[in-house]
Amino acid sequence: MRINGSNQPNFNPYKNIVKKQAEVKREINKQDQIEISKEAKQLQESERPNEKRAEYVQSIKNLVQSGEYKVDSEKVAKK
C-alpha cells in the first residue's frame, strides 16, 4: 500500500492566499469610469433653462420682492 502525503509536488497550501492577495491588489488599482449615452446628454441639455425664460422669471421675482407686482384678476378668473 502506498500513501501519498503532503509532500506532493502540486500541493501548496498558501497558493489560494497568494491568489486572493493578487486579486485584491488588482481591484485596488482599478479606476472608476463613467460613460454617458447620447440620450442622457440630450436630456441634460434640455434641462438647462432657456435664457429668455430665465430673464423673465428673474424680472418677476424682482417685481414681487419690491412689491410692485400686480395680479390681473380678470386673467386669473378666465383661467
Rank of each mutant, 00 (worst) to 15 (best):
R2L: 14
R2N: 14
I3W: 04
N4Y: 08
N4I: 12
N4K: 07
G5D: 10
S6A: 08
S6M: 09
N7F: 10
N7Q: 12
Q8W: 06
F11G: 06
N12I: 11
P13Y: 03
Y14K: 09
Y14R: 11
Y14W: 07
N16C: 14
I17T: 12
V18H: 08
K19D: 07
K19N: 09
K20D: 13
K20L: 14
A22S: 10
E23C: 05
E23K: 11
E23S: 10
E23M: 12
V24S: 04
K25S: 12
K25A: 14
R26L: 12
R26G: 11
I28K: 11
K30D: 05
D32N: 05
D32H: 03
D32Y: 06
Q33T: 15
Q33A: 14
Q33I: 13
I34R: 03
E35G: 03
I36C: 02
I36S: 03
S37H: 01
S37K: 04
S37L: 05
S37R: 04
E39S: 01
K41V: 04
Q42D: 14
L43A: 09
Q44Y: 15
E45H: 01
E45V: 02
E45T: 03
E45N: 04
S46W: 15
S46L: 15
E47S: 09
R48C: 00
P49L: 07
N50F: 03
N50W: 01
E51S: 08
E51F: 05
K52L: 13
K52Y: 14
K52G: 14
A54I: 06
A54N: 09
A54C: 05
Y56H: 03
Y56R: 07
V57C: 05
Q58D: 12
Q58M: 12
S59G: 12
I60T: 02
K61H: 02
L63A: 00
V64L: 05
V64P: 00
V64D: 01
Q65G: 08
Q65P: 04
S66P: 00
E68R: 02
Y69V: 13
Y69E: 13
K70V: 06
K70L: 04
K70T: 05
V71H: 11
D72A: 11
S73F: 03
S73C: 03
S73M: 06
E74N: 03
E74R: 01
E74P: 00
E74K: 01
K75E: 09
K75G: 05
V76Q: 02
A77S: 07
K78F: 10
K78T: 12
K78N: 14
K78P: 06
K78G: 12
